[in-house]
Design a binder for these strands. Structure first.
Length: 335
DNA sequence: CTGATTTGACCGAA
DNA sequence: TTCGGTCAAATCAG
């Protein structure tokens, strides 16, 4: 487990990064056309993630942390879980804990960074799922008919919304989710709303994760070594998040920042680490005249692809050595 | 067999 | 009370 002093160190690094990012944003605002909107949007995303990370670090640095929130509801009872009712949602210690986590997550959800992108479906039967891929592996966990929208047919006033979460939610504690819904304005367009960012760093080609027994075997001071294993240490229920770079096309940032006590772990979007950002959101290639069910299938398939990616759930903080990069030309990020 | 999807029920927010 | 979002058992697919 990360030691308190290490968290303070991390917090200082994060604060430094946030400060430098803010300065970059101010500089870019002053130089108007010199820095395009996309770069500004990315900067905003970086800053948002940093703020989230700071919030999480502050949370962890408090001795009373979030762990107590998890444990308190169960502590009272020694009796076996009631097996009455037969309902799958009947009370049991595990369920009480999960329910508590769920409520906490509901509270925190509005603090998660959120952005939208629109995906246009074009005619190309050959490339189906590719267009809707975003480089992440998603798992569908629900679907809902949403009122007030005109699709699938003009006569019907609802549309179907699909809910997806990161495949690595359980293994890496990644709370990133997205919702896919057909646009009201254009049946060929899908609105995709992302919430939270990936902690699993699944889109990045990272070096292999060191085996657990290698984690502290570098000869470096322990606090430095722990930087590299932070994501693993963060995998309790209130941690989370990071790393889905927002789309470079049709990006709609409605970014919110984590509140002081959100328990949300922000992280560092792609510009820090990957030169291939623009490849994550290719244009669309799905037949526009496909039936609703076909399109749903398409979206579903696209959303669940990329499972073959070489996933590295580690949140390697060696990407967070801000100083040399952030203090220099912004083009270093986005070039 | 394992992992992903479907789908009805549940829950909190408005 | 309604509605959006999530859960989890059942089912499907590779």
């Amino acid at each position: 487990m990360m030691e308190h002093g290490d968290v303070r160190l991390l917090l200082n690094l994060l604060l430094q990064g946030e400060r430098q990012t803010r300065q970059l944003m101010e500089a870019s605002a002053a130089s108007s056309p010199a820095v395009n909107e996309e770069s500004r949007a990315r900067l905003q995303q970086i800053r948002s993630s940093l703020e989230n990370a700071i919030a999480m670090a502050k949370l962890i640095s408090r001795p009373e942390g979030t762990h107590r929130l998890i444990l308190s509801p169960v502590a009272a009872s020694d009796s076996p879980p009631p097996s009455n009712s037969g309902s799958p949602r009947s009370e049991s210690p595990e369920r009480v804990v999960k329910e508590h986590e769920r409520r906490e997550m509901c509270k925190n959800k509005k603090d998660l960074p959120k952005w939208k992108r629109q995906v246009r479906v074009t005619t190309d039967s050959g490339g189906l799922a590719e267009g809707l891929e975003d480089g992440c592996s998603w798992r569908k966990y629900g679907r809902k008919e949403i009122l007030g929208a005109v699709h699938p047919r003009p006569a019907v006033t609802f549309t179907v919304k699909g809910y997806y979460r990161c495949t690595h939610r359980n293994t890496a504690g990644c709370l990133a989710t997205k919702q896919v819904q057909r646009s009201d304005d254009d049946p060929c367009v899908f609105d995709i709303t992302y919430r939270g960012q990936h902690t699993c760093l699944q889109m990045l080609q990272e070096p292999p994760i060191p085996a657990p027994d290698q984690l502290y075997d570098t000869g470096r001071p322990r606090h430095e070594q722990q930087k590299q294993t932070m994501a693993l240490s963060f995998s309790f229920p209130y941690d989370s998040t990071p790393i889905t770079g927002p789309s470079t096309q049709n990006l709609i940032l409605s970014s919110t920042t984590a509140s002081e006590n959100s328990g949300y772990m922000g992280s560092f979007p792609l510009p820090f680490t990957s030169p291939a950002t623009s490849n994550f959101f290719p244009s669309q290639v799905v037949a526009p005249n496909a039936s609703e069910s076909e399109l749903t299938e398409t979206v579903s398939a696209a959303a669940s692809t990329v499972n073959s990616l070489n996933i590295n759930p580690s949140f390697t903080l060696n990407h967070v050595e801000f100083d040399p990069v952030l203090s220099s030309d912004p083009s270093n990020f986005f070039g």
